[in-house]
Design a protein around this nucleic acid. Structure first.
Length: 597
RNA sequence: GGGGACGUAGUUCAGUUUUGGUUAGAACGCCGGCCUGUCAAGCCGGAGGUCGCGGGUUCAAGUCCCGUCGUCCCCGCCA
């Protein structure tokens, strides 16, 4: 390099007029007018117009030879643009650089897609040329936003006396949960490490060690199928505190999240965040991660139908089921086809169907199940707020199913009606979850979150006798219907921990083999502790206004968990396999679908 | 594991169904020329195609059928 850069491409203003400066960057666009050539130089800070005039004809010829994405250094004098040539869309639009010399630092092939364009290339291309995709303004912005958010989190947690400690990536495989990514051991042929699904056990051990406020920006890996909001490797802001109640975890989390919002230019959210219990969330929204930006809340209307002659409702009520009502104001205008679409949503959510009727201008019910509705039932519904023009949707089923199905219909209905959502980010806590949920395990129960959650004291006696009624000190942070994080107060009593493990069907031998080290640690003075893990990628996605984690992760994987840029995953050599004591099953090499490039 | 959408020039797409039919188009980009105030510069000219890949039906396939690969969305899965 002939010169050192003196300013960035987003920096120069009218106040710099007259200074001789050096800019470096990529050629964004070049406009050759014959006797006058403009080159826009771009770096991550902005764009500056460089100009050469006929007076310096050789230089102008060299500028004219520049092509898109060439990397250059330009030296020149900052000059004010003529008044009518000021570009108000550009931070540097008041000035331009009158070039006196140029150094081409690197040439570039014609890029496979334009960097400076709103037109979206195919996902395939963007993956293959991820480094060029990252050069585009939207991802430049998102990466910067992510950096600022993480920095704000670190600063906040540091100020609150948290210390950042790294935990291992090569750990022991644990049962339960997601499928592990596994790493073969060379030194112990036939044995494997697992990559962590979260630093859960390590952070609990750190509490035993006396690091009473720990955090980590932790990479987590889960070998499960991908979604727009799910990558196989993702990042959590993982934190754990000793001697705490959920309230203190809430306060720390709120402070951290609020600081992150503020750091990236969002309004600081009002704290404390609203809270609702799991039961309340299920009763009002039919889901444990409610989108509270709009109403359309569920209503239990079983009581209205005690004497119903409508068989579908009567059978459900007699079996102890529930009837959930979703009232869609103005929904009477929905076509039969749209209502069928909602019924489809109900079925997809595990429901048997959707009962509905419309309220006519005169207050009478029409369509759907209207002919089964008796006068007193209609009156009860009207007292409950049903008005002319409404569409009433009913889900009758076992209580839990009825709510879940109705919750799914609620979301579909909001889409269908294009219900106005409150703008901005709406955080909320959902807490007091059941510890166990019915599952296909030897005991019929699995942890609803994870097995380290402290059951509420009053319900501990029922762990064995009535697991479904055991509530835990468990909490989720949700935002705009997205689950952002989840945490709990943990069990620090080894005996209680063993009871929970047995209740989810772990055998004594298994407990010792897989969790013996944790249980042993708990025998040596384990403080009461609790914490939370926040999905950093999802939070940043919301802050950035993106719709996919690919928008906020520099090098994400495709839906099939591959990285087309570098070609991972890839085969390993026979030597590597031999060294690890591994042999591939016949046929697996042919199944390798990753295209060589 | 299952359901759906997409794949045509360097890129984004039209053409594919209704109807298989001569030489597959557009815009942007690229290459060359002209041009002293552009900033999505303009004007003139040019090059550029394995219609993802393989097979089949047909006198004839971008178009119909089967398979396969890739990308995306969803279900299952994700303590």
């Amino acid at each position: 390099m002939k010169w050192k850069r003196t300013h960035t491409c987003g920096e120069l203003r009218a106040s710099h007029v007259g200074e001789t400066v050096v800019l470096t960057g990529w050629v964004n666009r070049q406009r050759d007018h014959g006797g006058l050539t403009f080159v826009d130089v771009r770096d991550r800070y902005g764009l500056t117009q460089v100009v050469a005039e006929a007076a310096a004809s050789d230089l102008q010829r060299r500028l004219g030879e520049l092509r898109g994405e060439y990397v250059i250094a330009v030296r020149g004098v900052v000059r004010r643009r003529p008044q009518e040539m000021i570009n108000p869309n550009l931070g540097t639009g008041e000035i331009e650089l009158l070039c006196d010399d140029l150094d081409v630092l690197a040439r570039s092939n014609t890029p496979p897609f334009p960097i400076d364009s709103d037109r979206e290339p195919s996902e395939e291309l963007k993956f293959r040329f991820r480094y060029l995709e990252l050069r585009r303004p939207s991802l430049q912005r998102n990466m910067l936003l992510r950096h600022k958010a993480v920095l704000a989190a670190r600063r906040t947690l540091d100020a609150l006396e948290f210390i950042e400690i790294e935990t291992p990536l090569l750990i022991k495989t644990t049962p339960e949960g997601a499928r592990d990514y596994v790493v073969p051991s060379r030194i112990y042929p036939g044995k494997f490490y697992a990559l962590p699904q979260s630093p859960q056990i390590y952070k609990q051990v750190l509490m035993v060690s006396g690091f009473d406020r720990y955090f980590q920006i932790a990479r987590c890996l889960r070998d499960e199928d991908l979604r727009a909001d799910r990558q196989p490797e993702f990042t959590q802001i993982d934190l754990e505190m000793s001697f705490v109640t959920p309230e203190e975890v809430f306060a720390v989390t709120e402070a951290t999240v609020a600081a992150m919002c503020e750091a990236v230019g969002h309004e600081r959210p009002v704290t404390p965040f609203p809270r609702l219990t799991y039961d309340e969330a299920m009763a009002r929204y039919g889901i444990d991660k409610p989108d509270v930006r709009f109403g359309l809340e569920l209503e239990e209307v079983g009581a209205h139908f005690q004497g119903t002659t409508f068989n579908a409702f009567r059978a459900v009520l007699e079996a102890g089921g529930s009837i959930q009502l979703l009232r869609a104001p103005g929904g009477a205008g929905l076509s039969r086809k749209k209502i069928d679409g909602l019924t489809e949503a109900a079925k997809q959510a595990g429901g048997r169907g959707l009962a509905w009727c419309k309220i006519e201008p005169d207050g009478a019910a029409s369509g759907g199940i209207s002919r089964f509705l008796r006068a007193e039932e209609m009156q009860a519904l009207q007292r409950g707020g049903a008005e002319p023009g409404d569409l009433l949707l009913f889900v009758a089923d076992a209580p839990r199913t009825a709510r879940e199905v109705c919750g799914a219909v609620r979301l579909a209905l909001a889409e269908e009606l294009q219900v106005q959502r409150a703008p901005g980010l709406h955080f909320a806590w959902v807490h007091r979850f059941p510890v166990f949920e019915p599952a296909d395990t030897p005991t019929g129960w699995a942890p609803s979150h994870h097995m380290f959650t402290m059951p509420e004291p009053e319900s501990r006696a029922r762990i064995e006798s009535d697991p479904g009624s055991v509530y835990g000190q468990l909490y989720d942070l949700v935002c705009n219907g997205v689950e952002l994080g989840s945490g709990s107060v943990r069990i620090h009593d080894p005996a209680l921990q063993r009871r929970i493990m047995r209740q989810i069907g772990l055998q004594e031998e298994e407990i010792e083999r897989k969790f013996g080290f944790l249980l042993q640690a708990l025998e040596y003075g384990a403080p009461p502790h609790g914490g939370i893990a926040l999905g950093l990628d999802r939070l940043v996605m919301l802050l950035a206004g993106g719709t996919s984690l690919r928008d906020v992760i520099a090098f994400p994987k495709t839906q099939r968990a591959a990285s087309p840029m570098d070609g991972s995953p890839s085969q390993i050599s026979p030597e590597q396999l031999r060294e690890l004591g591994l042999q591939l099953l016949p046929g697996v090499t042919e199944q390798d679908g990753v295209e060589e490039r």
